[in-house]
Amino acid sequence: MNESIYKQHILEHAQHPHNKAEMEHPTVSLPAKNASCGDSYIVYLDIEDGAIKEATFSGVGCAISQAAASMLTDKLSNLSLEDARAITKEDIFELLGIELSINRQKCALLVWNGFQQALEQYENA
């Protein structure tokens, strides 16, 4: 790792995350945890008419997982369920705009994983 992953925009999102709030009446909500590094989040979705009205998250984690959660929830709001499901790992890496080692990729994808599972659960319900 030659270049720092702690770029200004990452730190900005990590320390002042967007959409970090518990949702009182979510359509669907799930925990997203990484037991080995101590990240523990809950993701919330408010879904209406086949689209995400609002996506939020709560919990604790490292700067990379926080920043990814902040950026992803920005992107998810007002997205159709289909478009939300179509967001890939690579999209998250692109969103973050930093080179991540294999161990830190898990941090970046933790909340994305949580939202994908929440969407799946909603579709199967």
Binding site: I5, S36, G38, V60, A63
Partner: peptide, 28 residues
């Protein structure tokens, strides 16, 4: 500063430390 970020910054400086629960969740 989350432990993983402390360890990440240390790692960048060639300081190898571990972050997380260290397989001892009930202790934490």
């Amino acid at each position: 500063v989350h432990s993983h970020d402390v360890a990440g910054i240390a790692g960048k400086n060639s300081v190898a430390v571990r972050a997380g629960h260290h397989c001892a969740l009930p202790l934490h």
